[in-house]
Design a binder for these strands. Structure first.
Lengths: 217, 217
DNA sequence: GTCTATAGTGAGATAGAC
DNA sequence: GTCTATCTCACTATAGAC
């Protein structure tokens, strides 16, 4: 990480970005000092101010630019039409892939909202709402068409997003599971959740299982 | 919050606890200053050191004592026997109730693990593993008995816990939803997820629904 | 148990030479 | 664009009177 002379520019910018992501993910924004950050990049602490006006602006830039990337990528991935199950599958596949690919950014976007100053927070929350809505719309469409059985679309939205976003807390590229296995499994679980058929009372006993099956036909 | 004279003792201790929970939830451990904490309690900053040796110990006490409470409460709530669906239902009901009742502690236990020093972290992670295992065992039992259809018990465990723990990020006592409604809805979603029947390919069309129902009988 | 006062440290941010 | 040097401030933690 050390550096030789008075060089660089855009290379430094990218290095600061990556080091910042790493440090904030590990220790949190408040606990990360600019001295640490500079050391990791291999420059002096004062030099950082050629790249941002202050620490808060650095955080906001990280979060905002990531949210923009996320939106742009989602736009590409969403199906314009198709059954709700197909659209939901596509959404989950995208979400999982993105969360695995860019887990640090994603994690920070959830965990460091509290560290944003009010004005900056407002901007980010608006983008976030927009994203949640994409999922809500799919669930709502499925509920109306009868493909999905959901007691509450809002809660289902939050539940699914929490479940998917949790992936970036435990997924490790060198772990037991491949990206594909995770994607497949979560797609299955989310679809099962959405398609429901689970009245808590309905399924435990075999007798009830029969009733349910009959109702479905 | 202000106080009158040189009084108190255990009352102060409880006040510090509550103020700490609130501040850490809102701003995070690293961003909370002991001056803030003292001000919220209505004492001077130096007086805090009658209640802990340093800031880290305060955090660790909060987290550890909460984990102990959680384990004790879970012990009471778990069913010793019954079908996997019944046991899972009970687990979810407990989990939701607890997360709603003590959302600050729960949130901190997830979000401030990073702020624990290595030794303290080790202790907490062990307790956490133990808790996850309670859920894994239920899912595994259900998978073996054929009640549940799960591609991967470990991922299902993590998915369910993430989904449930997410509740403390958005639930508001004065909001649209009652505790009971949340509990019922999440129980339903978790059971649906566990009981599966969701090969991504299998369920969109009604034709496949029939096959599924037939197989279940 | 609480207060006031302060030691000692490390933080974010700025100034000016190269 | 980077460096060195430094300002200013807030923080954790301690000491000692009441």
């Amino acid at each position: 990480m050390a550096r030789i002379a008075g060089s660089s520019g855009p290379r430094t910018e990218e290095a600061i970005r990556r080091a910042g992501l790493s440090l904030i993910t590990t220790h949190g924004y408040a606990a990360m000092s600019l001295r640490q950050l500079a050391a990791m990049v291999g420059i002096q602490q004062g030099s950082l101010y050629n790249y941002f006006r202050n620490k808060q602006e650095f955080l906001f830039d990280l979060i905002r630019s990531h949210m923009q990337d996320l939106h742009a990528a989602l736009e590409q991935a969403l199906l314009p039409e198709g059954s709700a199950a197909e659209r939901l599958t596509r959404f989950v596949e995208f979400h999982v892939a993105y969360h695995i690919e860019r887990s640090q950014e994603v994690f920070i976007c959830y965990s460091e909202l509290r560290s944003l100053e009010p004005e900056n927070l407002t901007a980010v929350v608006a983008m976030r709402r927009d994203y949640e809505r994409r999922l809500s719309d799919i669930l709502e469409a499925g509920r109306e068409s009868g493909e999905f059985r959901l007691a509450d679309v809002r809660m289902a939205t939050l539940a699914i997003l929490a479940m998917l976003s949790g992936i970036c807390n435990w997924y490790r590229p060198d772990g037991r599971l491949s990206k594909e296995a995770v994607s497949r499994t979560f797609t299955g679980m989310v679809l099962a959740l959405a398609q429901g058929g689970a009245d808590p009372a309905a399924l435990p006993q075999p007798a009830n299982l029969n009733r349910l099956a009959a109702r479905r036909q």
